[in-house]
Amino acid sequence: MVKQWYTSRIRHGVRAIFAALCAVACSFTLAACGSQESAGEIRIGIKFDQPGVGFKKSGTYVGFDVDVAKYIARKMGYSEDKIIWKEAPSKQREAMLQNGDVDMVIASYSITPERKKEVSFAGPYFVAGQDLMVRKDETSINGPGDLNGKRLCSVTGSTSASTVKERFSKEVQLMEQPGYAECATALFSGIVDAVTTDDIILAGLASASRGRLRVIGKPFTKESYGVGIKKGDTKLAAQINNAIDDMIQDGSWKRAIDDNTRGIAYTPSAEYNPPEPTEGEQ
């Protein structure tokens, strides 16, 4: 659990003053200002198709990742109207950071050794577990041990799809789609028997289905969500980690979880949550 929290008002003030000065006077680099856009703006990559996590709704953006992004941006000196939201599909996240299309990615982005070869991370800010979602009347699937001969759907480029290929390739038929909305549609129509991804994503999808879908509730992996940043930017990682600490400490983290999974019997793993940021030290 988080042992020591960064709560000094003096240092909070220094961070705010630093961000304001950067917006006016510095060259627009991530290391110095946290933004490569124009003065006072920051570009954040999120998912647009994950209810409860990152979702574009009537021109607005909602979800747990969105709440985390807003909190971090505010702590860095950016008001909500200075955030430029960019869609960050799973298979494009590394390229978006490497090409400078975004300043950070907060998009159910699991920290893995392979990804750390290409980008850096701050966090984690949440620890999820891969689970299964089925139709409400499904009785033959009660956990990962019941997948033999079943048809699963996950998203191209996700760690969830990779896990299925590694652990269940001989047992299941995997359909990969560009987004979870397409997977949910395939599940509704009976094309697949289950959708698999991280439990918090499934909780959001189940909530949006108004009772037609349910989460099994037996996670079988550990997925640490990090904030993706450009490779080697330790200064930005430190800023983000301080903000994550503050969000957990002041209760905003738990409120964001509760608000975005309302109506679903979902509780994050108490063994791993809330997490202590460990990335960005090197």
Rank of each mutant, 00 (worst) to 15 (best):
T267P: 13
A23R: 08
V102E: 12
N273V: 06
A265H: 10
Y6L: 02
L152Y: 01
S79K: 10
I229Y: 07
P178C: 13
A73S: 06
D103E: 12
V134I: 15
Q36N: 08
K136A: 12
A19N: 09
R135S: 00
D198S: 11
S224H: 10
G232M: 06
S189E: 11
Q239L: 15
K117T: 09
Q177T: 09
A16P: 04
S8K: 05
V14P: 11
N148Y: 14
F55C: 03
G263E: 03
I244H: 12
I248R: 01
F48H: 00
Y61Q: 08
G54I: 02
R255V: 15
Q98E: 13
M247H: 01
T221C: 07
A243F: 04
A128F: 15
A237Q: 05
D103H: 11
V2L: 10
V53F: 04
Y225T: 02
A194L: 04
W253N: 01
C26N: 15
E176D: 04
V53M: 07
E182C: 09
V127C: 05
D259Y: 05
G77V: 12
R135W: 00
V2I: 14
A19Y: 11
C26I: 15
Q130T: 07
T197C: 08
K70L: 06
E166Q: 13
L205V: 07
T159N: 13
K70A: 01
Q50S: 11
R151H: 09
R74K: 09
R115M: 07
V134N: 00
I46H: 04
S269I: 09
F220W: 07
E114I: 13
R210P: 00
G34E: 07
V134Y: 01
V119D: 02
A23H: 11
V62Y: 05
K86I: 10
V227A: 01
S79A: 14
E276Q: 13
Q249T: 15
Y272L: 03
T112E: 09
S58Q: 12
F18A: 08
D258K: 06
I44G: 01
S90R: 04
T60Y: 13
K86L: 08
R15L: 00
P51E: 01
E223R: 13
M76D: 03
M96R: 13
E279Q: 15
C153S: 05
Q130R: 11
L147Y: 09
G280C: 08
K136C: 06
P178M: 13
G179H: 04
K47Q: 09
D259A: 14
T29F: 06
F168A: 04
E271N: 10
K222F: 12
L187W: 01
N99G: 08
E118G: 01
G123Y: 13
R135D: 02
Q98M: 11
I46F: 06
I216V: 09
I72Y: 13
A73N: 04
S162V: 13
